[in-house]
């Protein structure tokens, strides 16, 4: 479902903007990244919800294995379900949006580095809001500010590559953020889950 949503958001932009190729090419990095963030937000609401309702989450917390490792496993599963298809779809859509060829590869790398970061950050919010009614909207409001740096680095990196400018610093920053959230994210998520479940 989030993927279908992603496809629809992306195809909505040319319809609203008009089909001028240069305009689309300039806006393509921003459009794709905004669509990725929205699609991830749609999917994040459900990361822990079904486990919570079925009681599996309590088993996670009670199990002898460290909770953060189990969380990491869930995040990888989420990445395979949502992140990987997005990675495969994105080059296709960058062609539809007329992104310059040089930008496509960089877009792919930014997605590779950025999506896991976003999903880990979003999972913190999902863990905090898991038992709540209207959790979905609150989740979006909570995590969007934290996603700002990633969107900035990724979209500006792709735009720079499209213009033939250097883009390595953006990619390195994205990689740094990924490592940071990979190290600290699962710990924060497991803290948040323990609070939500008690």
């Amino acid at each position: 479902m989030p993927l279908l949503f992603f496809v629809m958001v992306i195809s909505l932009f040319p319809m609203a903007l008009g089909v001028e190729p240069h305009l689309l090419a300039r806006l393509a990095p921003a459009i794709i990244w905004v669509a990725v963030v929205l699609a991830l937000l749609m999917s994040l609401d459900n990361v822990f919800k079904s486990d919570y309702q079925q009681g599996a989450l309590e088993q996670f917390v009670l199990s002898p294995y460290p909770l953060s490792l189990l969380i990491l496993g869930k995040s990888i599963a989420h990445w395979i379900a949502i992140g990987l298809p997005l990675l495969l779809l994105a080059p296709l859509f960058s062609v539809l949006l007329n992104l310059p060829f040089a930008g496509v590869g960089v877009l792919w790398v930014t997605l590779l580095l950025g999506i896991p970061t976003l999903s880990l950050i979003g999972s913190i919010g999902a863990a905090l809001t898991v038992g709540l009614q209207q959790g979905g909207l609150l989740l979006a409001i909570l995590v969007l500010p934290f996603m700002v740096p990633i969107v900035i680095f990724a979209a500006s990196g792709v735009a720079a590559a499209g213009n033939g400018a250097p883009f390595y610093s953006e990619l390195l920053l994205l990689a740094a953020l990924l490592l940071l959230t990979l190290a600290l994210g699962p710990v924060a998520i497991s803290f948040a889950l323990r609070v939500s479940i008690e």
Binding site: I124, L128, L142, P145, F146, V148, P149, L177, L184, A188, F191, A192, V195
Partner: peptide, 15 residues
């Protein structure tokens, strides 16, 4: 938890 994560993130957002 949210406030602590936010405090860690503020410098990143700022830069």
């Amino acid at each position: 938890i949210l406030a602590i994560v936010g405090m860690m993130d503020i410098p990143i957002i700022h830069f």
